[in-house]
Nucleic acid binder design. Structure first.
Lengths: 201, 201
DNA sequence: GCAAAATTCAAACACGCGATTTAAACTAAC
DNA sequence: GTTAGTTTAAATCGCGTGTTTGAATTTTGC
């Protein structure tokens, strides 16, 4: 179907070049479709972008939450599974959609479009919320908000580095896909770091 | 001098919008200069970009290195000063150049120009080398290369998050500049994390 | 003081972009 | 076979881009 081919091509072009740098002509060329099809099936580039994001973000899966935590050992395993899911989701080549989501989110981070807020709310915020709940289970109730946020930022930074700075990773580690080849080690390390100073660790 | 005013304005525009999205009209408007001046003083937009990067990256200062480490307590303090310098350098509003460097580097990360390699070698690699030396001082000699790289990536991720994902930081922490207001806590936390499992810690 | 060089300026150029329109051709359903 | 829905190629439009032009202006050197 033409409509779907356009959206698929649009997602890849938007992920590669961002909204502004992506051109309708390249999208149509990639989709093997006439230029007029954009204005026939959608009302224009802006609407196509909106629909493309709707499509790609519909694949998003919720991350492990703190609801399952009953004991301290649960806390550790849930934290680990959160980090693993966060990392694996972004890297799994079978789930290409997540890679595209990351790229689009990164373009929005540098050159936000009008729907930056929507992307933040729909894509990143749910992960942050679940991570925060997990962290709070391991921290004393009088922990300052600053420290909780700082811990969130640290986990996000350690994980997201592999996606956004993948060009750096590739330059420093040239023997294959570093994240994919060392997933277990990385997950364990970030997990241990994230639990640093928590009540049971 | 016109030439310098153009370069200053160009650096800011390139940092804000990246090479492709930055326009020479905006650069000239910001510099208060006629459009033709770009092609008179430089040969065009590409050359202006090259010269602008030359200028901004000339401000780069080397980070603390492992040479000063004599004891285990030295290791900890050197690591801390590396992290503080890395964070502070990118955030210090008095040293605006470093903030601009970061932004330009991020644009290059997403949409690399032909001089991406030069930027990587001149801007990031020296920091990585000094960090690696510090880490090696605290790790047993038989530590795998993978683990060393992973620790590097983790430190870089935790630090760089505050710069690249500053829009996320601003959304999650709305009460002022999170990094600037909590520099000590953040530096101590990342330092402690980076030393996790090291021989003396 | 003045001629020559360097610089600045307003205006225009060529090109590619996104948006839109047109009329024709094709497809599927009834 | 007719009709409605879809796809196509081509053209036009207005706009923004980097670049160029040639004249006006300022600075320099003697």
């Amino acid at each position: 179907m033409t409509k779907n081919r356009i959206i698929s091509a649009a997602i890849e072009e938007f992920a590669e070049h961002g909204y502004h740098a992506a051109t309708i002509r390249d999208i149509c060329k990639r989709a093997g479709v006439n230029i007029a099809a954009i204005n026939y099936h959608f009302s224009g580039k802006a609407e196509l972008y909106r629909r493309s994001l709707e499509m790609i973000f519909s694949f998003k899966q919720p991350l492990p939450c703190a609801d399952k935590i009953k004991s301290d050992s649960d806390l550790k395993s849930v934290m680990k599974s959160w980090i693993m899911a966060f990392l694996y989701r972004g890297n799994d080549k079978k789930i290409l959609e997540n890679r595209l989501m990351e790229k689009i989110a990164y373009h929005e981070m540098l050159t936000p479009s009008v729907i930056f807020d929507e992307i933040f709310d729909a894509y990143l915020m749910p992960d942050v919320v679940s991570l925060e709940k997990i962290l709070r289970k391991g921290l004393p109730p009088d922990t300052s908000e600053k420290e909780i946020k700082m811990r969130i930022f640290s986990v996000l930074g350690s994980c997201k580095f592999y996606f956004f700075h993948y060009r750096i990773v590739e330059k420093i580690w040239t023997e294959g896909d570093f994240l994919e080849d060392n997933m277990d080690m990385i997950v364990d390390y970030i997990t241990a770091q994230s639990l640093l100073g928590l009540k049971f660790s």
